[in-house]
């Protein structure tokens, strides 16, 4: 029995993933802010529309405030869903995107700092995206 135990312990050394901290999810660089749109410069804006039966309404606005870029969701409402994220993307299929993190609320005004701003001429779509199941809930095109 001792021999078996030794073999199993030795074999598990090769087989097991190891004692590591990793939950397999990504992190984002978005930070919580007390953003005030009345003090910022509006650069672009668009209106949300829903997709495939999901209801998303309100507007998305791109602001510049003291050199930092913010996406501001105004009078916003969205259908509930799992793992909803806010993406700044090039297309509605999220072929290239920057994640601003989890949707903070299904309704109301909310601001997201864009820590690594992309080229908003190309990344001109704001997506409400169910990340886990790769489903578009709604989008707004910044103009």
């Amino acid at each position: 029995m001792k021999l078996l135990s030794a073999v199993l312990i030795a074999a598990s050394f090769f087989a097991l993933p190891g004692c590591k901290k990793n939950d397999g999810t990504t992190t984002t660089t978005t930070t919580t802010t007390n953003f005030d749109p009345t003090k910022a410069t509006l650069l672009k804006q668009g209106t949300f529309g829903g997709n495939m039966g999901y209801t998303v309404s309100g507007s998305a606005k791109l602001y510049d405030y003291q050199g930092k870029k913010y996406i501001y969701l105004e009078n916003f409402t969205s259908s509930g869903g799992p793992d909803l994220k806010v993406y700044v993307a090039t297309t509605a299929t999220a072929s290239q995107f920057v994640s601003l993190g989890a949707l903070k609320s299904n309704s109301g005004n909310q601001a997201y700092e864009v820590a690594n701003p992309p080229d908003f001429a190309v990344h001109n779509k704001i997506l409400i995206w169910c990340q886990q199941f790769s489903v578009l809930f709604g989008q707004s095109t910044l103009q």
Partner: peptide, 9 residues
């Protein structure tokens, strides 16, 4: 999905 929030298909 990259650590810095960027991503692509």
């Amino acid at each position: 999905l990259a650590n810095n929030g960027a991503g692509s298909a």
